[in-house]
């Protein structure tokens, strides 16, 4: 699969799982996309560690250091899986995986070259020495515990936006 096909398939499958999907080609595009999905003055948690995060963080004047107090988390995640439209979050490099869980809105940025074709490809890459926590995220938090009727946003985010960069 070519990189472009992989990115398209990933976003297509992520959209099926009720994630908002965006594809950008440069930093200007990325900031424009962020401006569309996040109200600029929201209390935003953005680790500001990777180059992409540093660029993104500059956009938000009201950044908070405690993700439990944020309404939005904007972060770059470890990778993604095209087969299932899944984000891969990892604790590697001191990342707080739960930062994408507590706020009501999770905005995840994935680099195009970090998308795996299949679940098998991901686990082949990490199975020998897994970090403390790997979390696969497919769509927003959901339940069907009442009459099997879908309800969104139980304990995790009610809104998930994915930006492939």
């Amino acid at each position: 699969m070519s990189g472009a096909d992989r990115g398209r398939l990933f976003l297509e499958n992520a959209a099926k799982a009720a994630a908002g999907t965006h594809s950008v080609s440069d930093t200007g595009d990325l900031l424009a996309a962020l401006g569309r999905v996040v109200a600029i003055d929201s209390p935003v948690y953005c680790p500001g560690v990777t180059p992409i995060e540093r660029a993104a963080a500059a956009l938000f004047p009201n950044r908070v250091s405690d993700y439990a107090a944020a309404t939005v988390t904007v972060e770059e995640v470890f990778g993604a899986i095209a087969e299932t439209g899944t984000l891969v979050c990892s604790s590697e490099g001191g990342r707080a995986v739960q930062a994408g869980l507590l706020p009501a809105h999770h905005v995840a940025i994935v680099r195009r070259d970090r998308i795996f074709d299949t679940l098998d490809d991901l686990f082949a890459a990490v199975a020998a020495a897994p970090p403390t926590n790997i979390t696969l995220v497919t769509g927003p938090s959901r339940t069907a515990d009442i009459e099997l009727t879908l309800a969104i946003g139980v304990h995790g985010p009610e809104k998930l936006d994915i930006i492939v960069s």
Partner: peptide, 19 residues
């Protein structure tokens, strides 16, 4: 097709971890 969250937990929080 996929459960929303799959957690793979390997041991405790180690030096340098935030999770």
């Amino acid at each position: 097709t996929m459960t929303s969250y799959v957690s793979v937990i390997t041991g405790t929080r180690k030096a340098g971890d935030a999770t």
